[in-house]
Nucleic acid binder design. Structure first.
Length: 426
DNA sequence: TCTGGGGTCCTAGGACCC
DNA sequence: TCTGGGGTCCTAGGACCC
């Protein structure tokens, strides 16, 4: 049996942990740049605050109902996430936990669940809450896709389920499929949902009854086949062992306000490159390809604001590198190349790919001393920036004025990861 | 006026090779 | 001049996830 453990309104729950007077009160957390609502509590949902909707559209409702608003505080959420995952590992064994996202983990229950899945699932839910203060929902079923379905049902009707749903018999599974809209299934997004609806396939049960051959033809090839198999209880999406290294590392941001000057664009690109290079060194990789892109301000013709047209170009490094200074140089050259005088831009990004293990440590002996200096410099910068304040030490090309910096008007303290912001009890 | 920031996998098609 | 039937590798783009 598989389980999925999913934190309820995770970012909001993290904020509430340090402001307990907000329990039972509506809370929302905004995306970077305070643009979208990316987490909301049940109370906010009941007021009609949309998920993943733009903040400005919900602003009236939010102000009229005194909804508490926070900018996203990823230092805090990341730390609390680690505590939740650690709890799960202690309960079912490290090797049986697959961290799927910051607020979700799959568990392989194996023999733990043979007799009493309900009891085990409830035990997990209660223990995580007791140890970390974070409420979670648990779904249990034979496959990951069905476990996700169970979890969806657990969250949908918390008063009845107490945040736990177990689908351990064929009858329960069939009933769950029949009462669930096909668009709620894991692996069915907007495009497929619309397509399926058009064909008269409305419930998960309707999809269950289609053949693998049909899914291969109409639902993205092998991806669709896996979905059908999973619904039938056949494990087709396997558990990943340990968190493997990223194959691509990106740092991209909207600007706080549109940016027109090349200088500001270059500062932003240098800053994002530094951040991406830090992530690169953290997983001990080096990059061989660097991609820089900008998104002009003009609204997209398609009306889809998300995947608006971006203008970018890439550069291939002669030697893969993890040193910020090696990456900033080509990044800035690309920025100059793609920038057009007279336009203004709302976003820029840096993507590192072609990642390989960073073997420059071993190569040290054979390198000129200047290269070794580069490594020491990086280590020192990373350590200082990690233990003190972000960007105490940075490259001059990152700038000091930061005209492009994103908006964050409602930021809470990093209670658990910065000494000077520790929660105080008087 | 104001709409995030990451990631993954898969497929099709082109370039190139023998 | 005629010209088959494989392979592989890479990239762009589409779909999905949180």
């Amino acid at each position: 049996m598989k389980a999925i453990v999913d934190c309820n309104s995770f970012y909001c729950s993290c904020e509430r942990l340090f402001e307990p007077q907000l329990d039972q009160k509506p809370v929302v957390v905004l995306s970077n740049n305070d643009g979208c609502i990316i987490s909301r509590t049940d109370e906010a949902k009941a007021l009609g605050v949309g998920m993943a909707g733009p903040y400005f559209k919900a602003k009236n409702v939010i102000e009229q109902n005194s909804v508490s608003v926070f900018s996203s505080n990823y230092n805090l959420y990341g730390d609390l996430s680690r505590r939740v995952m650690q709890t799960l590992k202690e309960m079912v064994g490290e090797n049986n936990v697959e961290v799927y996202s910051v607020d979700e983990a799959f568990l392989s229950l194996g023999e733990f669940a043979n007799s009493n899945s309900d009891q085990l699932a409830m035990d997990i839910r209660k223990t995580v809450e007791r140890w970390t203060g974070i409420k979670v929902s648990v779904g249990v079923a034979p496959t990951k896709t069905l476990a996700k379905l169970a979890n969806y049902l657990a969250k949908k009707d918390k008063a009845i389920t107490d945040c736990v749903t177990v689908l351990d018999t064929q009858q329960k599974i069939i009933h769950a499929l029949k009462i669930t809209d096909v668009k709620e299934l894991w692996g069915v997004g907007r495009q497929y949902a619309d397509k399926l609806k058009g064909l008269g396939i409305c419930t998960a049960w309707d999809l269950y009854n289609l053949s693998e051959e049909w899914a291969h033809r109409c639902l993205g090839g092998v991806v669709g086949v896996r979905l059908i198999k999973e619904l039938h209880g056949e494990e087709s999406i396997i558990m990943e062992k340990e968190l493997v290294n990223k194959k691509m590392i990106a740092t991209t941001r909207m600007f706080g306000a549109p940016v027109a000057s090349l200088n500001d664009i270059k500062e932003a690109v240098a800053t994002y490159t530094s951040r991406a290079a830090e992530k690169l060194r953290r997983q001990q990789s080096a990059a061989s390809v660097i991609n820089v892109f900008v998104v002009p301000k003009e609204p997209s013709q398609t009306g889809r604001f998300r995947h608006g047209p971006s203008i970018g170009s890439h550069s291939i490094l002669s030697t893969p590198s993890a040193l910020t200074q090696d990456l900033i140089k080509p990044a800035l050259q690309i920025a100059e190349r793609i920038y057009e005088q007279g336009r203004s831009y709302k976003k820029a990004g840096v993507i590192l790919s072609g990642l390989v293990p960073d073997n420059s440590i071993q190569a040290n002996l054979f390198e000129p001393p200047s290269k070794n200096m580069g490594r020491y410099l990086m280590e020192m910068m990373d350590n200082i920036n990690f233990s003190m304040r972000n960007d105490v030490v940075k490259f001059a090309s990152s700038g000091t004025k930061r005209n492009w910096k994103m908006r964050q008007e409602f930021h809470s303290p990093r209670y658990t990861t910065r000494w000077e912001e520790l929660y105080e009890v008087h």
